[in-house]
């Protein structure tokens, strides 16, 4: 599913170069649920961005479902993100002034898909929010907003869900509900990679990858 070989990412900050990732090699199999933990500055966000095809590595190879990601141009990357990956963010990133339903529809706009309304409704239903379809994000509780974001991530039937601190803005009870939802999705066969720094969140996953200073400290 995810094959990373000796991935290095170097940021240029003026004249100094900052290595955010130093030779990461990692495999995630189809249907796995993996957490990446580590202190801030350890490079876990950078790793997520590369896995999510938002960023390209400076060195090394990345294959996603056998596709050589390094070879793709911006438009092809956008297409991969649209069709294969669902993103979940700490701060939900829903469009304000737009209903839950329209938020869920958003990825479908960019592939010009038909019967969007219906597909979005189904996705909302699958996260248990059908009754809140017409509400705007500001009218929804944090857990509900994150469910809308999950429905949006699911809309194109992705094979991979990437969640960056998905419970960071939620209370313990809601966090638990969201993690159970992730587990449920994982059982349906979706690969899930999530970044967190909370050990009890990582405990929901089958495997934890511990990062420090741009390298994998421990995996398993």
């Amino acid at each position: 599913m995810i094959e990373l070989d000796n991935i290095t990412k170097v940021y240029k900050m003026g004249r100094t170069e900052l290595a955010a990732l130093r030779g990461i090699s990692l495999r995630v199999e189809q249907g796995e649920m993996v957490s990446i933990i580590g202190p801030s500055g350890s490079g876990k966000s950078t790793l997520m961005n590369i896995i999510g095809c938002l960023d390209k590595p400076t060195l090394g190879q990345y294959r996603l479902e056998g596709i050589e990601v390094n070879m793709l141009n911006d438009n092809e990357l956008a297409q991969i993100r649209n069709r294969k990956i669902g993103f979940i963010f700490q701060s939900f990133n829903l469009l304000p002034r737009t209903t839950a339903l329209a938020n869920v529809e958003l990825p479908l706009i960019y592939i010009g898909a038909g019967n969007r309304r219906q597909r979005a409704s189904q996705a909302l239903e699958s996260v248990g929010l059908a009754h809140r379809a017409k509400h705007r994000p500001s009218e929804l509780a944090g857990g509900e907003q994150q469910r809308v974001a999950i429905a949006r991530a699911l809309i194109n039937n992705p094979s991979l869900i990437l969640a960056d601190e998905p419970t960071g803005n939620l209370d313990t009870q809601t966090s638990k509900e969201i993690m159970l939802l992730f587990k449920q999705l994982n059982q349906q066969g979706i690969t899930i990679v999530l970044v967190t720094h909370e050990a009890d969140i990582a405990a929901y996953t089958q495997r934890t990858i511990r990062m420090r200073d741009g390298q994998i400290e421990a995996s398993g």
Binding site: L54, A78, N93, N156
Partner: peptide, 16 residues
């Protein structure tokens, strides 16, 4: 800016 970032993340191309 965040909206633009999100749109790009979910598959918007530059053109879009």
């Amino acid at each position: 800016t965040r909206e633009i970032g999100l749109r790009k993340a979910v598959g918007a191309k530059r053109r879009d």
